[in-house]
């Protein structure tokens, strides 16, 4: 059984962590062929060929495949679909944009955000913001799946898959890229960081959010935020951790001034070690924390930053 895996390619570079995690999930389904598509994708294809467990890499380079536009990439994948039983990708915003479109072109259902592979047709996925886990069995001939990367370990390096260049499908020319506004940061990317420090409403202001950033920099961590903190304007939108934001599963997650709404827990409860700092000892975040510190964050966070 063959699997076609859409690699996460951004600006010509392979997002190694997300792709390697999806490879782990895909290996359980069969022989993995990785598709690296983009305006420039050769370097990404070469990088993907080195992931252990990848048997073949297809590189499609065409201007129409750049900038994450759904229509040309979906058309390309649909044209390749004949050879594969599974078409999969890491559950990034790009893949979530493209794969449902692919599924509809093939007249099959999509399985989004799968967290476990039971067998070739059966998968687990969270529903209701992670408040329930559903096991679903597909009756479609082809299965189109996005995998939630937080639930899979990254496949190692050491592979040496063959790389083949293919051409793009016809560009339907329905949409055009205008511009990107990428948040510039020297910190690690939120969804793949080993450590995440997040602030919530308890931080109290945009200025005081610097406390969170200082601690994160000391730990070499990514910065996250609860929806309450984002809604109050303390932190940027794309830092939001939770069901409607990013889902993370770092080695260490430090929640500061976050009460722990279900919405937020759904986005971080798969972290290996969770630390909660909150002055309200009744806060639900303590129910998922491995280490809870009931303290005023304005005392505890500077002290922690200094002593680490």
């Amino acid at each position: 059984m063959a699997v076609l895996l859409l690699a996460e390619v951004t600006g010509g570079e392979l997002a190694m962590d997300a792709t390697a995690k999806a490879v782990t999930a895909a290996q359980a389904l069969g022989d993995v062929t990785v598709l690296a598509a983009g305006a420039s994708a050769a370097a990404a294809g070469d990088a993907a060929a080195k992931i252990a467990g990848v048997s073949k890499v297809l590189v499609a380079e065409d201007a129409s495949l750049g900038h994450r536009l759904a229509e040309p990439t979906a058309a390309l994948i649909a044209s390749l679909a004949g050879d594969y039983e599974h078409i999969v990708a890491p559950a990034t915003t790009d893949a979530k944009n493209i794969l449902p479109r692919v599924a509809a072109l093939l007249d099959v259902m999509i399985i989004s955000d799968a967290t476990a592979v039971v067998d070739g047709a059966t998968f687990e996925r969270p529903i209701y913001a992670g408040n329930a886990i559903q096991t679903m069995k597909s009756s479609d001939a082809k299965k189109v799946i996005t995998f939630r990367t937080a639930n899979f370990d990254a496949a190692g390096e050491g592979g040496s898959a063959s790389v083949e260049t293919i051409s793009a499908a016809d560009n339907p020319g329905l949409s055009e890229w205008v511009e990107n506004k990428v948040a510039k940061s020297d910190r690690p990317e939120l969804t793949s960081a080993g450590i995440v420090v997040s602030g919530g409403r308890g931080v109290g202001s945009e200025e005081d959010f610097a406390l969170i950033e200082t601690l994160a920099d000391k730990l070499g961590a990514a910065v996250g935020a609860s929806r309450a903190a984002v809604d109050s304007g303390y932190a940027a939108n794309d830092l939001q951790v939770g069901q409607t934001g990013k889902v993370v599963a770092p080695e260490l997650y430090v929640a500061v001034g976050i009460s722990g709404a279900i919405q937020h827990l759904a986005g971080m409860k798969d972290s290996k070690v969770i630390v909660a700092i909150n002055k309200d000892e009744e806060a639900p975040i303590f129910q998922v924390a491995d280490f809870g510190l009931v303290a005023d964050l304005f005392d505890a966070v500077p002290e922690l930053t200094q002593k680490l």
Partner: peptide, 29 residues
């Protein structure tokens, strides 16, 4: 097209411990 095999509560995390100070937190970490 998708048959629901079963629906379950998500796995609960085991309860953690409360630490009394920043020093103790660093030690535990």
């Amino acid at each position: 097209r998708l048959e629901v095999v079963k629906t379950e509560e998500p796995a609960q995390r085991a309860a953690g411990i409360t630490v009394g100070s920043v020093d103790e937190l660093i030690e535990k970490l």
